[in-house]
Write a protein that binds this DNA or RNA. Structure first.
Lengths: 121, 121
DNA sequence: TCCCTAAGCCTAGGCTTTCTAGGTATGAGC
DNA sequence: GCTCATACCTAGAAAGCCTAGGCTTAGGGA
């Protein structure tokens, strides 16, 4: 898997996880790994900056909590964040459907030898 | 649509179009716009560098042709390019399925108020 | 006691890729 | 002659993710 397929999708994925409830950074990495079936194993250097970016944008809010002697910064969605999560999901569906059409059309073209070139003059 | 959702996917899409037959740069832009239902309307400054990158990588080969007095550089897949196209498509499927799981899980979690936080301590 | 690992947080810098914004040239239509 | 569409190209900026570190506390093993 090409690593920067994530580009432009990470924020949406983080928002999607937070839709299920508050989380802290480290746990968010675990959640993304689990829910993606091991496909997304993101380094902390990707996730923490993303969370800070989302907080600056007003889409998530954070607070400190203490658990087992360890400090944790817990992030949760704001109202704007919930709206953004919905929008990101629908943008993803549109993007994904478009990619699927391109891949599908390419394969179909290749399957019919008499169809001529993909792009007419 | 966030424009750099394309990151890391453009090469695969270009290869997919070329799977259907040779194409030149300008026509490739049209093909991507048509097949994606208008979602992908890429500027030339994205496509030409991508084609040159793919050519340097040995995945496409190019040759000049003349049509209606206009010179065209026509790109076609090499054998390695065909293999790469297959691989990109399967990487896309894996990526797409993973994203879908994350979005799906997030929505499911939000639907059950008693489920507790998304990420257990 | 000392060391290593895991859980947690963070940042600086680099790399890659895409877009913006330009440039060139030909042919067709007005 | 002018403009528009076709067709190619490039330099530089912008953005986002990853690499590679650094910090702390807790717990287990030797």
């Amino acid at each position: 898997m090409s690593q920067d397929m994530m580009r432009g999708h990470l924020d949406g994925l983080v928002l999607a996880v937070l839709t299920g409830g508050p989380a802290h950074g480290y746990g968010l990495i675990d959640a993304l790994r689990d829910r993606s079936g091991g496909v997304f194993d993101l380094p902390e250097g990707s996730v923490y900056p993303a969370l800070h970016r989302l907080e600056r944008a007003g889409l998530v809010a954070s607070g400190w909590s203490e658990a087992a002697g360890r400090r944790r910064r817990v992030y949760s969605l704001t109202a704007a964040g919930r709206r953004a999560a919905d929008q990101r999901r629908s943008e993803w569906r549109s993007f994904s459907a478009a990619v699927e059409r391109v891949f599908g059309a390419g394969a179909a073209g290749a399957a019919s030898p008499d169809a001529g070139p993909a792009v007419a003059s």
